[in-house]
């Protein structure tokens, strides 16, 4: 067995590089609680309208009264509903999304509001929008021939009272 001295040094360098990268990601995950949207929460996608949470009248943004909010949305070919949503800036928001039909991907460029929307499972994202303005909510997972046209709007507005 022969491993060259220089090569051994390189192995150490790569191992240290990898440890640093994984370390930074771990620090953010543990220290700042930054995780990708996750969680096992089955839901019957064919009966969303019969659930309380995802019934049409209950979709949209709600102020929780404690400085946080909840945004509930449904993805269905070919749109995200409600198709226009207004949310306050600098407010921790719990976003809950479900699919009524096939696979979708919800994607708001320049924010970290992104999640896959998978039939049969609820997606949850916790985020705080840091800039006011108009954003597009685009579908980023192929969902059928009308996929390109699946998009809606998100408006981040100043906090009420400020």
């Amino acid at each position: 067995m022969h491993i060259d001295e220089t090569e051994k040094k390189w192995v150490w360098i790569t191992v240290i590089m990898t440890v640093i990268m994984v370390g930074v990601l771990t620090a953010y995950a543990v220290g700042s609680n930054i995780h990708p949207p996750s969680g096992f929460e089955p839901i019957d996608s064919t009966r969303l309208h019969l659930t309380e949470e995802f019934a049409e009248d209950n979709l949209g943004y709600k102020d929780n009264g404690d400085g946080t909010g909840t945004l509930t949305m449904v993805g269905a070919r070919y749109g995200f509903y409600p198709s226009r949503v207004e949310v306050p800036v600098d407010t921790p928001i719990r976003i809950r999304v479900a699919s009524a039909d096939v696979l979708h991907g919800l994607h708001v460029p320049f924010t970290n509001y992104t999640t896959m929307v998978v039939p049969g499972y609820v997606s949850e994202v916790n985020t705080t929008f840091q800039k006011t303005g108009d954003f597009s909510v685009m579908c980023n997972e192929y969902c059928g021939l009308g996929h390109d046209h699946m998009w809606s709007r998100l408006k981040v507005v100043p906090k009420s009272g400020s």
Partner: peptide, 26 residues
């Protein structure tokens, strides 16, 4: 970015993903 798997499992796989970069660097 998918629901239906918990964050801990994703984290474990992330660790392995970085490990597989090593043979390429070697």
């Amino acid at each position: 970015m998918d629901p239906f798997q918990e964050a801990g499992w994703k984290f474990l796989h992330m660790f392995g993903t970085f490990m597989v970069a090593l043979p390429t660097l070697f």
